[in-house]
């Protein structure tokens, strides 16, 4: 199972400023970390991969029919819903025990019923990660999933990703240490 980007180009604005120029890469089963400076186009690349942004040029081979799950750059949580509701939103009632287990593993057992709006930035990020992990998927896209996590909890959350994530996993990170702990391939843009 693989997904291939071929000659991807993307520009924004008027006059157009090229963000991605002739990008080709292949993602296979396992973890691939994408690294690079801010503004280089990492998020644009994964948004193209997820089908959220159309490329100006190029093709994506092997994505059709594949289910995608994602931790977005923004949290995109329902602030008026509890942590558990936000996770359950993307799955069915039979997964409730699994959702509680994931949230507990993420250190959120005390906050299952707290509204997303009441959670700290780091806690919200962990809810996003649990939501992405519980959803059924072939491709898991993680756009800076550890952003805002303090160093005491970060290693455990990285381990959690390594334990639960399956299929093709694409992770954007700024931190070489995160990429190293995650293991797998590293692509620098």
């Amino acid at each position: 199972m693989a997904i291939e980007l071929k000659g991807i180009c993307k520009s924004f604005g008027e006059p157009p400023v090229a963000v991605l120029e002739n990008i080709s890469m292949t993602f296979t089963k396992g973890i691939t970390c994408i690294m690079g400076q801010s503004g280089i186009g990492k998020t644009t690349l994964v948004n193209i991969l997820a089908g959220l942004v159309p490329p100006d040029k190029g093709e994506i081979i092997g994505r059709d029919g594949k289910k995608i799950s994602m931790v977005f750059q923004e949290d995109r949580l329902l602030n008026w819903e509890s942590a558990i509701s936000n996770v359950m939103l993307v799955t069915t009632a039979k997964d409730r025990d699994r959702a509680i287990k994931l949230l507990t593993e993420a250190g959120l057992s005390e906050s299952l019923n707290k509204k997303a709006a009441e959670l700290s930035g780091g806690m919200k990020r962990r809810v996003c990660l649990c939501r992405a992990l519980i959803s059924s998927y072939d491709i898991l896209i993680l756009d800076e999933p550890f952003k805002g996590l303090d160093n005491t909890i970060k290693p455990a959350i990285i381990e959690m990703v390594k334990t639960h994530a399956t299929g093709i996993i694409i992770c954007i990170t700024h931190d070489p240490t995160e990429a190293e702990i995650l293991g797998g391939k590293v692509i620098t843009l």
Partner: peptide
Amino acid sequence: LLLEMADVFRIPVWK
């Protein structure tokens, strides 16, 4: 952004 999230996760219409 929430609607886009719902698209990515294939959340059914009633939800």
